[in-house]
């Protein structure tokens, strides 16, 4: 069945760990002091992009509890005083669930459809975080920076998504059950 050489084991582990590691990297990158205007403002939304893209390709390697943990980590690292901890986790979990439920419309379709899907889902994410932060701090928070963030991340989606989309099942026989039947391998991108 499976080759059990050291390399094969490493390969399996590496594949299993990759999406989580990439997501962790982007969560940490959120805090990196990049001085690029606009780009550094959008960094907090990049993890959503990663969650979306990997939920398309390999949702089984990005399980819910992992998203929960990383979302809470993101909130802890990013949050100011009074901001709700766990709202990003909620957003991640919901984005994953939404992608899983709509694989039919998102996997194996032209890139533009995926982009549109990302627009809708990340809008939901931004709205969710904004609403919860407003409720939690009970203060009117200017939505304009959040909307700006959203616009920038939607615009840079085509730059990053194809890179992330290379992470996917390689071999037709390796296609996990979840994606079987709904999409042929190699169709996760345009």
């Amino acid at each position: 069945m499976r080759a059990d050489g050291t390399l094969a084991i490493l390969d399996r582990w590496g594949r299993a760990a990759l999406p989580g590691t990439v997501l962790l990297f982007f969560v940490l990158l959120t805090l990196a002091p990049l001085r690029a205007p606009y780009l550094s403002d959008t960094l907090p939304l990049l993890p959503v992009l990663v969650v979306f893209q990997f939920s398309l390709a390999t949702p089984e390697r990005l399980p819910g509890p992992l998203l929960l943990a990383l979302g809470i980590l993101l909130d802890l690292l990013l949050g100011g005083p009074g901001a709700p901890v766990g709202v990003s986790a909620l957003g991640f979990v919901l984005v994953r669930a939404a992608v899983m439920a709509n694989r039919r419309y998102l996997v194996g379709v032209p890139f533009l459809f995926q982009w549109a899907g990302f627009c809708i889902l990340s809008w939901g994410f931004v709205a969710l975080v904004w609403a919860f932060t407003t409720l939690w701090t009970w203060a009117p928070i200017d939505p304009v920076p959040a909307i700006l963030q959203y616009v920038v991340v939607v615009v840079i989606y085509p730059l990053i998504a194809p890179l992330l989309a290379r992470v996917r099942a390689r071999d037709p026989l390796n296609v996990p059950e979840l994606s079987r039947g709904s999409a042929r391998p190699g169709e996760t991108t345009s």
């Binding site: 990196a32 002091p33 990049l34 550094s40 907090p44 100011g80 928070i141 959040a146």
Partner: peptide
């Protein structure tokens, strides 16, 4: 030394 930005739509700070 500033090692991290803590800038989001809801927060202005640094680490």
């Amino acid at each position: 030394r500033l090692v991290g930005d803590s800038v989001s739509a809801y927060m202005r700070g640094a680490l």
